[in-house]
Design a binder for these strands. Structure first.
Lengths: 140, 140
DNA sequence: GGATTAGATTATAATCATTCTAAATTCGCA
DNA sequence: TGCGAATTTAGAATGATTATAATCTAATCC
């Protein structure tokens, strides 16, 4: 008897066979929208699923990316971070604390005349700087 | 007698002591604005400077980045690519041929209301898609 | 000029995120 | 229940980048 929950349904809707690791990883991603790394996902889920392998985390995330459930962020870190795709938004990275913050941005307003012959499938906006908490810290 | 050329002067202006590897790497970056990888730079310069070490290429590029002469691009490749900083522009990556193309975009026109408390030091725009040449190829 | 020193370069080893591989396990379905 | 395919697993392999330690360079000081 398999328990079909909302997460499993979401996987099925994206043509991904549900499995315990896949459901747990999707659940983690949705409930912790904090752009986690593979290591963070692995460490967190290891407690509830001790047999989990890091390779499975990689495999699952790549499966999700192919199914367009997820997108990888490469904000200059060594480790890739992952973002559950929702609406268009940009990513801000604090160079002091390393935190990543979403911000609303109307990406479609970006008109790139140079690219009118190009087929564009994804638009990413990355800002770098210092977040308010770190600005206060450095002012002291 | 040291030959001071425009490249050495540019280094000095950025508080970087000129040296043969540094001048050659800067020259390469300016004359080949094609977002090269470390390997491409290394292989190309090895012919004129056979003693060049790959570690020197890494060190030099990181020195340039700190001096804000250069910026690293992380368009989801394993290898980092590098871009001589000029004016604001976005980067398009063709997911078919892997080529990277600059495009003009007025990034400063972008207002991110969510970030008005943030200090923003860099803005990057990355688009993904298919370039015209590859569109034609796949249509055949 | 010759010694000193700091910084730059080199070669190699180490690191570490990610992928590969092959074996074990699980799941769906008859 | 049992077969076959897909999934998961553990560990090895890969490969870009960084760290280390030795060597070299070039300017400075006496």
């Amino acid at each position: 008897m398999v328990v079909i929950d909302a997460f499993a349904e979401k996987l099925i809707a994206h043509n991904i066979t549900p499995s315990q690791p896949r459901v747990l990883i999707l659940k983690y991603l949705i409930e912790n929208q904090c752009h986690p790394t593979v290591d963070q996902i692995y460490s967190a889920l290891r407690q509830t699923l001790p047999t989990l392998s890091k390779a499975t985390v990689y495999n699952t995330l790549n499966t999700f990316i192919e199914a367009k459930l997820l997108r990888p962020l490469s904000i200059e870190d060594k480790e890739t971070r992952y973002d559950i795709v929702t609406e268009n938004h940009g990513h801000f990275k604090c160079s002091s604390c390393g935190g990543i913050v979403n911000f609303a941005v109307d990406i479609d307003r970006f008109v790139a005349e140079d690219l009118h012959e190009f087929r564009i499938t994804a638009k990413n906006v990355y800002f770098d700087g210092i977040c308010p908490a770190c600005i206060i810290k450095t002012e002291k």
